[in-house]
Simulated scan of single mutants.
Amino acid sequence: MFQYEMYFANEYLFEIMTDLSQIMGIKYDKDELQKTFKFDGKNNVENLFLSYDENSQYFICIDCDNVDWIYPLVVRCSDKQHEKVNKCMLEWDNRIREEYGQDLTDHIGNSYGNEDTLLKRIEAKYKISI
């Protein structure tokens, strides 16, 4: 199992979600994503968008809490999908970094099983278990 995490500028939300969901074969409700994106509460679980595969084992998690227009993204994927998922996330990360004049990165590591992860911080923030 693989878990990749990154932050991204919220203006790319729908494109990133579309790309990742296609790679992973996850169907998601675009209206629900739009609703989560437009929700104006702060630190509210309604800011969290989760979309699972058909077996509820793998997922895409986006925290749309509108604190600073930068959203955390967590993707848990299978061994078969991980290379394509990683490549997609790395391409998006570098595309966004380039647009904002930041240094590019050459790696997004597997955080599955790590002690401190973005997913664990999201779970603690909303007091939930994903």
Rank of each mutant, 00 (worst) to 15 (best):
N10P: 12
D106A: 06
A124W: 14
Y4F: 12
I130K: 00
Q22V: 04
K127L: 09
M24V: 06
C88F: 01
I122D: 03
S78T: 05
K38F: 08
E46H: 15
L104K: 06
C77W: 01
N44W: 09
E15N: 06
I70L: 11
L119W: 03
I60V: 12
Y52A: 14
D65N: 11
L33Q: 11
L50K: 09
E11T: 15
M89V: 05
E98D: 13
K84Q: 15
L119G: 02
L73C: 15
D63F: 08
G109N: 08
E123M: 05
T117W: 03
C77N: 07
K120Q: 10
S51M: 08
E98I: 09
I26S: 06
E5T: 07
M24K: 14
D106V: 09
E5A: 14
D116W: 03
S78C: 00
T36A: 14
W69F: 15
N10D: 15
K30L: 13
I122H: 04
S56N: 07
N66Q: 08
F2S: 10
A9T: 09
D19H: 00
C88K: 04
N114Q: 09
N10T: 04
L73F: 07
Y28P: 02
I16N: 03
E91P: 11
Q102W: 07
I108V: 12
L33D: 02
S51I: 15
I23T: 10
Y71N: 12
D31F: 07
S111C: 09
K125R: 15
F2Q: 02
F39H: 14
C88Y: 00
K84G: 10
K125N: 07
N66F: 09
M17H: 01
V75I: 14
A9N: 15
D68S: 04
E46S: 12
I128W: 15
L90S: 02
F49D: 04
K30V: 03
S78W: 01
V74W: 01
N66T: 00
E15P: 02
S129N: 15
L13K: 03
T18W: 02
K38V: 12
L118H: 02
I130Y: 01
F49C: 09
K127R: 07
E123L: 05
D29P: 01
D63A: 11
Q102K: 14
F49H: 08
H107F: 14
L118N: 06
N55S: 10
C64S: 12
N47W: 11
E115C: 01
L33K: 11
Y12A: 01
Q81T: 12
K80H: 04
Q102E: 10
L50F: 13
Q34F: 11
V67L: 01
F2R: 05
I23P: 03
I108K: 07
T117Q: 09
I70M: 13
F59W: 05
S56Q: 14
L48P: 06
E99T: 06
T36Y: 00
K38W: 06
N66M: 00
E123W: 10
F39V: 04
I60D: 04
I96M: 07
D31C: 08
K120A: 13
D31L: 14
N86H: 08
K27H: 10
I122P: 04
N47A: 12
R76M: 11
N47D: 11
F49P: 04
G25Y: 10
